[in-house]
């Protein structure tokens, strides 16, 4: 698993797609999530595009595409049950899967130890 400074996690699946979610630290800081808006499957995204909107009881936030590629699957259950983002942010509550063009972009991101250090 890799981590971004924007508190996203990325995991490479067996089929080579990359799954993206937010970290437990991010979910805790956001507070109770009450709304999730997901991108359409098939959307081609560039790194830093705004792809997901999440709103907690406190505020609205955007999640950026951490990597170039095509959205091949989204976790629809989060639309109906946004609270899952707080319950299991690094497991069931993934946001989307990307078919990645250039896997070397993953190299920019932190491993778990580095991320833990980053959030202090």
């Amino acid at each position: 698993m890799k981590f971004t400074e924007e508190h996203e996690w990325l995991r490479i699946e067996d089929d080579g797609t990359v799954v993206v979610g937010i970290t437990e630290h991010a979910a805790e800081q956001l507070g109770d999530v009450v709304f999730v808006e997901l991108p359409d499957v098939g959307t081609v995204v560039s790194k830093d595009d705004e792809v997901v909107v999440i709103e907690s009881v406190k505020a609205a936030s955007d999640i950026l595409a951490p990597i170039d590629g095509e959205i091949v699957e989204v976790n629809e259950i989060l639309v109906e049950e946004p609270g899952k983002v707080n319950d299991d942010p690094e497991g069931d509550a993934w946001f989307f899967k990307v078919k990645v063009e250039d896997m070397s972009q993953m190299d920019d991101y932190m491993d778990e130890a580095a991320y833990k250090k980053f959030i202090g």
Binding site: E6, H7, E8, K58, A60, S61, L64
Partner: peptide
């Protein structure tokens, strides 16, 4: 409580 919408981050 307000919308704190600093574009582009998992905004903490």
């Amino acid at each position: 409580t307000r919308k704190a919408d600093d574009a582009g981050k998992t905004d903490l």
